[in-house]
Design a protein around this nucleic acid. Sequence first.
DNA 1: TTGTGTATGTTATAATTTTAACAAGTAGGT
DNA 2: ACCTACTTGTTAAAATTATAACATACACAA
Lengths: 207, 207
Amino acid sequence: MEKRTNVPKATLQRFPIYLKALRKLEKLGVQRIMSRELSEFVNIEPTTIRRDFSFLGSLGKQGYGYDVNSLIEIFDGELGGNFHEKLIIVGAGNLGKALMNYNRWNHVVGEIVCAFDIAPEKAGEVYQIPVYPLDQIREKMPEGCRIAILTISSDIQETVDLLIELGIRGIVDFTHEHIQVPKEVSVKQVDVVSMIQELVFETNSIK
Amino acid sequence: MEKRTNVPKATLQRFPIYLKALRKLEKLGVQRIMSRELSEFVNIEPTTIRRDFSFLGSLGKQGYGYDVNSLIEIFDGELGGNFHEKLIIVGAGNLGKALMNYNRWNHVVGEIVCAFDIAPEKAGEVYQIPVYPLDQIREKMPEGCRIAILTISSDIQETVDLLIELGIRGIVDFTHEHIQVPKEVSVKQVDVVSMIQELVFETNSIK
DNA sequence: TTGTGTATGTTATAATTTTAACAAGTAGGT
DNA sequence: ACCTACTTGTTAAAATTATAACATACACAA
């Protein structure tokens, strides 16, 4: 497998932004775009865009710009668009169910194979996705699954430890609590409260 | 109102992390903590922690450390914990409802005053929060509301423009599409697909 | 009360990230 | 086929962010 350990973290975080913007442009019928145009679209400096792109190769043509479709293909490949990542949801509450219903990501990064919940009575099927009791996770964990979406609200740290033991290496964390993980595991926090806190701080700072 | 335009963006993004960790420590009965201990807890270098804290004043005591409760109070104040921010949810679908039910943030950053949905038949009340048809937003927009949570899936850009016109200055964006906003408006993306994409990229890069 | 060990807050240094500048190369017109 | 205008990719400079080093001051023990 390719190694791209040299892509800066800051750049990596912008890749999904580019991909989304490019998809939107494609929908609008735009076939060709220049870094300066794209810049106004995503609020990122043209130079930054060009430098970001350059980490993936020479994607554009001088004097011409970039081909939107080619870019989408490349980013799709880089960001797992053609991969079939197996995902699990841990916690089948309101939020977990909303995410299960959110079937847009099928064939984008992969598919939700199954879900787990601590309450055995929730076992069954939700939006055609099987839900198992959490205590069966050792048997039911999909082969090769590395990424989990965490929407539980109790026994959080214990569950995280268990997931890591079972091979999870990336966690999308919807809990509100702080969780501890070893360095080889990545956590992406999705905390609406934190985001609102940042927004409150920012909008206060401006005034 | 105080001006803190000098707090680095990178630092600002860590404030909620500290606050959450401190709350957990408080729950565990920890009353006093040193930057070195906190460091292991949140995976941030002690020096970075001390420097981050110093932007809010001299919060600790040399030779002693920091008082957990004092820190929590200070961060609460800075991050809107004692403010009563008025929030609205735009889009009362599965996700919107899940967020409405998620009443934990009451009295943390503020409260969800009401929600809006494009489908008039969804108007009514969900978890005791009033839901109005989107076309009534001009009349029903709460006075002084600056922050909106966006969970709609159509007419996204149009809705964003409208929200900004009505005074919204911060958006928590759950849509999957790219949205454009003027510079004075902040957007916090919550895109599970993007996060998984980053995770896929990261876990691939390591190997 | 005095002294010592320790942790902060800050100053100085390193690393990362962003922006600017420009050389090289292509498109598209003549 | 050539020339010009324009945009990329890259090199160099600036800004931001993180880490290390250390002086200052407090806690705590004797």
